[in-house]
Design a protein around this nucleic acid. Sequence first.
DNA 1: ATCAAATACGAGAATATCTCGTATTTGATA
DNA 2: TATCAAATACGAGATATTCTCGTATTTGAT
Lengths: 218, 218
Amino acid sequence: MAAKKTKQSEPEAGASGLARLVPTQQRSRERFERILECAAELMAEKGSEAFRMSDIVERTGVPFGSLYQYFPDKTAIIGTLAERYNAIGRDCVRRDLASVRSAKDLYPALCRIVDSYYQMFVDEPVMRDIWQATQADRALQKLDEEDGIHLAGLLVEALRRIAPNAPAPALSAFSQLVMTLIAAAVRHAIALEHKEAQRIISLFKRMLPKTLVALDNG
Amino acid sequence: MAAKKTKQSEPEAGASGLARLVPTQQRSRERFERILECAAELMAEKGSEAFRMSDIVERTGVPFGSLYQYFPDKTAIIGTLAERYNAIGRDCVRRDLASVRSAKDLYPALCRIVDSYYQMFVDEPVMRDIWQATQADRALQKLDEEDGIHLAGLLVEALRRIAPNAPAPALSAFSQLVMTLIAAAVRHAIALEHKEAQRIISLFKRMLPKTLVALDNG
DNA sequence: ATCAAATACGAGAATATCTCGTATTTGATA
DNA sequence: TATCAAATACGAGATATTCTCGTATTTGAT
């Protein structure tokens, strides 16, 4: 529908389908990163709705024209940040589940996931704002939906190592639910002061082993 | 800061602090409701970000000037809807917890909450959009935060009837977490097709009694 | 019938996002 | 190094959207 005049290096050749292009030249790459960095700062300060494109222009010195050369719209900037942080989260989960060999490894692994997920939010509070932004925008909702599926998939893999012949739908449903509950508990916790948060995290971890029993009947 | 020229019936005399005023005259009241009804429709269709004030003007025939006589801004419309639906949810929970007299009543009550909460979302899919909208806007986040506290408070009341001398912080943390998890599970479920959703709901209910054991040590 | 308060109204001010044509820079090539 | 096409830079202004403000109309009490 919109054929480019000056054809660039194949639209969205990069990893994410959100950026207009991943620039090849040095300075461009740096600006691209600088824009994302700045957007994250602004989101942490003002929230996803309140920050303005003009804020980015001011802070980075990158003018509008260039900004929109990298990202088709504001949503794409938030989406790119969401993809990055989701990817970091997945790496965490993958790592935390890697050592699961037998049933006895499962509970400690889930506890590690809870802890590292919580720590991620503490280290990068903007993650909360990014997650909130993805909830409101239908284009971005899919990102978290996909991430949820991906995360559940990782847990399914681990569970299959424990119970190779468990029925797939049961494993899948269980994994989805467990990951959903972990995420919800952690997101609830990070909204509280540290002490209260620890209480909630600790309580949740004490609940977890009980819930694992529900896996048996499926 | 903004002294009204034509002083109205005491600003925000109504229930919610969100509407500019709850109109006293017949036709006004009807319009007020019609606007909310229309906004809910639009949110269900397009999402909270995509629907336009001008959409409301077109569909209801209420012109801009009047629209803004009832609501100070777009956020206030969404906020008013959120308050209403939150109130309905609280009534459900209150009702479902009312019959809890002893420990054995607790689990069935929580199951009722899960079911009625899920049913609410099925009956009024716009609730999901409203919830999502409240996540993104910092002004609206407080509404759900308060609602969460309120809901947890209802569960605390019920728990106190069971265990009158349990330590308050433990009861409170437990209640917050349980309500958070119920909400998360249900919101996860409603995004799925009915069959899958039932599987998740059912699985969650099977997990619940196990988690209640964690209440004992606190 | 009269009047003040309440409500109605919509043009346009204010604010944001995003586009488009033109200018500049870059790196490959001879 | 001189040349050129592709890539990147740029920002004024086109477009879109929210919200205000002054004026006109309606309402209900007296």
